[in-house]
Computed example of a mutant assay.
Amino acid sequence: MNIIKKSLYQIKRPWKAYKEKAPMAAFITGRLITMLVLLFLLGFSLFGLMELAPGDIVDQMMSQQIMSSMDGSSSSGKMSESGKASDKDNIFNQKQVEQLRAEFGLDKPFYVQYFKWLNRVILHHDLGTSLISRAPVSFLIRSRIWNSVLLNLISLVFITLFSFFLGVYFSSKAGTNVDTAVTFFALFFHAFPGLLLLILAQLFAAVTGIFPVTAYPDFSFADAPMRFTFSYTHHIFLPLLVSFVGGVGGTMRMIRATMLDQMGMPYIFALRARGISEKRVYLNHAFRNTLNPYITGSANLLASLFSGSLVLEIIFAYPGIGRLMYEAVMQQDINLVLANSMFISALVLIGMIVSDILLALVDPRIRYGKE
Rank of each mutant, 00 (worst) to 15 (best):
Pro217Thr: 03
Pro14Ile: 09
Leu151Pro: 05
Phe47Glu: 03
Leu39Trp: 04
Leu166Asn: 02
Thr229Pro: 05
Tyr318Glu: 03
Ser304Tyr: 03
Asp179Thr: 04
Asn90His: 06
Leu38Glu: 15
Ser309His: 13
Leu131Ser: 14
Leu38Arg: 15
His234Gly: 04
Gln10Gly: 08
Pro266Tyr: 01
Phe237Arg: 08
Ser298Ile: 09
Gly194Ser: 13
Val362Met: 14
Ser148Phe: 10
Gln99Lys: 13
Asn90Met: 08
Phe221Tyr: 15
Phe211Gly: 08
Pro319His: 02
Thr229Asn: 04
Pro136Tyr: 01
Phe47Gly: 07
Gln94Tyr: 10
Ile366Asp: 14
Leu238Ile: 15
Val137Gln: 07
Ile334Met: 12
Leu39Gln: 12
Ile357Thr: 12
Thr214Tyr: 00
Gly77Ala: 03
Leu49Phe: 14
Gly30Tyr: 04
Gly55Cys: 09
Phe40Lys: 10
Asp59Glu: 08
Arg227Pro: 10
Ile334Cys: 10
Gly247His: 12
Ala339Met: 05
Ile159Val: 13
Ala257Lys: 01
Asp59Thr: 01
Gln94His: 11
Ala205Gly: 07
Ser143Glu: 08
Phe47Val: 09
Thr176Leu: 04
Tyr111Asp: 10
Ile4Met: 06
Asp363Thr: 08
Ser309Arg: 11
Asp356Asn: 12
Leu52Thr: 00
Met259Lys: 07
Leu150His: 11
Glu51Gly: 09
Ser277Tyr: 06
Glu278Arg: 10
Ala17Val: 02
Met263Asn: 09
Phe27Cys: 12
Phe343Met: 15
Leu32Cys: 14
Ile236Asp: 01
Leu166Gln: 06
Glu103Lys: 15
Leu349Val: 07
Ser243Asn: 12
Ala286Tyr: 02
Ser45Met: 15
Lys84Ile: 01
